[in-house]
């Protein structure tokens, strides 16, 4: 952006930083835990630093740590990371109409720096689609605040971890940090069905080679969730069929579980909100 330093863009950038700032403490603690969990895993300190800086996706970083420890093959690790990241695909669809005017490489970079909280707060602004003065600068203000608080806390966590003895079992903190994400994601009955089926299948197929159980569990979960949706739609169809609006999951979706820390929940549960947001963005 050639006029990046224009007064308007500078103010929009600072506005973005300010908008994200309430989420910084939560991002910071989340990054700290992720850093500690990475450093206490099988990763070396340089590897943990590299992962933090390059991957920049907290929940998928935490999810793969047990897989590294279990010496599972590369593709299992990558597949798991991809599954955990699938929610970002929804976000990318939500951002697309806002930034389609940018050249490809700029869109790619912008996408990489998107995240759960950034996306949520960006959509809350209800920007008109297409080019708007200051919109990109606002996004970058949030992205810069989010990226720097995440990286600083994660690196501090990695370096602090060596102060704690290994037998304190601090790697468990990484697993514990995933519990709120999973529970908050269960905002609908269909998701509950999906998660329940996933855990049962994962256990039943645990002895299959290469942890084939992982893709099997996710595939079964998608089927179970979709099936639950269809059932709910059928039951809801008796009342009023308004066509494409899909009233079904709303039956249970009225009150998504409270996010773990009000606006700042860094991960999965934002996906639930994003559906409505992408809807309004179109």
């Amino acid at each position: 952006m050639f006029d990046r330093l224009s007064d308007l863009n500078r103010r929009a950038f600072l506005d973005g930083v300010k908008t994200l700032s309430p989420a910084v403490p939560a991002t910071f603690s989340w990054g700290l835990v992720t850093g500690i969990a990475m450093a206490k895993s099988v990763l070396t300190v340089p590897q943990a630093l590299g992962m933090s800086l390059a991957v920049y996706a907290g929940s998928s970083q935490l999810a793969v740590l047990p897989l590294f420890a279990a010496k599972l093959p590369l593709w299992t690790i990558l597949l798991t990371a991809a599954m955990v990241n699938l929610r970002f695909v929804i976000f990318s669809a939500g951002l697309a109409p806002h930034f389609a005017y940018l050249p490809l490489h700029r869109r790619l970079v912008l996408g990489y720096f998107n995240g759960d909280i950034i996306y949520l707060m960006f959509q809350k602004r209800n920007f008109p689609t297409g080019y708007q003065p200051g919109k990109e600068a606002f996004f970058w203000g949030m992205a810069a605040a989010s990226w720097s608080s995440w990286q600083v806390s994660s690196i501090v966590g990695i370096l602090l971890a060596s102060l704690f003895p290994d037998n304190w079992g601090l790697e468990l903190a990484g697993t514990l940090a995933l519990i709120p994400l999973i529970v908050s994601a269960i905002a609908t009955r269909s998701t509950l069905a999906a998660v329940g089926v996933a855990s049962v299948i994962a256990l039943l197929t645990l002895d299959l080679p290469y942890r084939l159980s992982l893709p099997l569990a996710v595939a079964a979960a998608l089927l179970a969730g979709t099936f639950a949706d269809i059932m709910a739609e059928k039951m809801g169809a008796g009342r009023k069929t308004t066509g494409a609006k899909s009233p079904a999951p709303r039956l249970t979706e009225t009150e998504p579980l409270n996010p773990p820390f009000d606006i700042k929940q860094p991960d999965l549960d934002k996906a639930a909100t994003s559906t409505k947001n992408t809807g309004s963005a179109r």
Binding site: I182, V197, A202, V218, G225
Partner: peptide
């Protein structure tokens, strides 16, 4: 796309 992340996380955890 929303089930998948939660499902993958429980399948790991």
């Amino acid at each position: 796309l929303r089930y998948a992340p939660a499902a993958a996380l429980v399948a790991v955890v």
